[in-house]
Design a protein around this nucleic acid. Sequence first.
DNA 1: GCGACAG
DNA 2: ATCTTGTCGC
Length: 274
Amino acid sequence: MASRDTVENDIVETWKREQIELKKKLVSEDCVNWGVSTEEPFSNLNLIGGVDISFPKGDADHACACLVVLNFPELEVVYEDLSMVHLTSPYVPEYLAFREVGFLVDLISRLGKDKPELLPQVILVDGNGMLHPRGFGIACHLGVLTDIPTVGVAKTLFHVDGIERDSYHADQALRSTQQACNPIYVSVGHKIGLETAVSLTHACCQYRIPEPIRQADIRSREYLRQHYTKELNNCSCKMQSSDTDASTEDKDDQRNRGDLVDNTCQTFNDLKLS
DNA sequence: GCGACAG
DNA sequence: ATCTTGTCGC
């Protein structure tokens, strides 16, 4: 009975060693010329990816993983792949990648096999990159495994020792849009510098959540609503107009409209002092 | 001992 | 991650 905790501790110890090992392959600076220093922000950027995983309400073992690729700077979805997956690892803070990253790698491999010409030049990941206790969050993990540049974008701050007092990590709280009061937290994933990661993320923000991640989130949720037919008792004939675009706003963008500006921006200011 | 803790 | 209600605005 008492062995379950012990087993999980052993697994986490294994995971920790693997993070430390994989981190040796991490590259935290720009490796490609994004064409920044010209008049156009990212003149060499054409394809940008986004990944996310959505869960149905009752079931923690199944989820819908989604990869989208958008063109840039139009930010239109040019590729979409959805996949129902079976989760085996639990969610343990600091070890999110061990629960989710495998499915994301699978989606990227499938894209590389089916339409390699659509492989994104950089992928925005829902979760942290180097803003992590060991500097190796899921964005780094995915980047190292796929060798594709990645950026970590978190919606809430992952508390790491030393971040509040001193942002030597040079991670930043970013205000995506003027009307979005809650910041997002951008950190380096792989093969990209922080400055580039931040401006690139900012260039993808039509709402609080950068469009690639936002689209992956919207589409994976929509997929669950349509295909994950759990025995939701009565109302089986509810039709919703599925708006794939501008009418689906970010929750926080809506809620943030008009109130709490001072308080939430306080958080932003606290953390921006890098 | 209790709380905090990306998704 | 997911749930919840109402509210505002186009």
